[in-house]
């Protein structure tokens, strides 16, 4: 309940402030988005499993973003940034799908 409310507030704040993304930060935006989606679905699943932990939620989100950005940054320096970015999106995407499937099983018992 409060989580959904905070999510909506975050979206509204972002829409009102309309911050300009610095140019050097642009490649990491898709990664941040996928990591955020992963954190949300992982959190919902953990909640439904009854093992949700706020610390794990925040730390996993932040560390996922930071680690993924670091990997892509290193890849950029070594010339494989695009591929590593794809790899991060694929791995996190698989997790998102798996978590969504688990949520579906919880909600619909199917």
């Amino acid at each position: 309940m409060i989580a959904g409310f905070a999510l909506a507030v975050g979206v509204i704040v972002g829409l009102i402030l309309r911050p300009t993304v610095p140019h050097w930060l642009e490649p990491y935006l898709p990664i941040a988005v996928v990591a955020a989606l992963d954190a949300v679905f992982g959190g919902i699943r953990a909640r439904l499993d009854g093992i949700f932990d706020s610390k794990v939620f925040v730390v996993s989100f932040v560390s996922n973003v930071v680690v993924a950005a670091l990997i892509v940054f290193l890849g950029d320096k070594l010339g494989v940034g695009g591929q590593l970015s794809t790899a991060v999106v694929v791995v996190l995407g698989i997790r998102i799908f798996g978590n969504a499937a688990a949520i579906r099983r919880h909600v619909f018992r199917a």
């Binding site: 409060i2 989580a3 959904g4 409310f5 905070a6 999510l7 909506a8 507030v9 975050g10 979206v11 509204i12 704040v13 972002g14 829409l15 309309r18 911050p19 993304v21 642009e26 935006l29 898709p30 941040a32 988005v33 955020a36 954190a39 949300v40 959190g43 706020s54 610390k55 939620f57 925040v58 989100f61 932040v62």
Partner: peptide
């Protein structure tokens, strides 16, 4: 429940929502 449970969830969700909004606007 620990004292930081609720603020942590709020902070995390704020960050997530903010990220979505930035990406959308961008």
């Amino acid at each position: 429940r620990r004292w930081f449970d609720r603020p942590a969830v709020v902070l995390g969700c704020l960050l997530v929502g903010f990220t979505f909004a930035i990406a959308y606007v961008h």
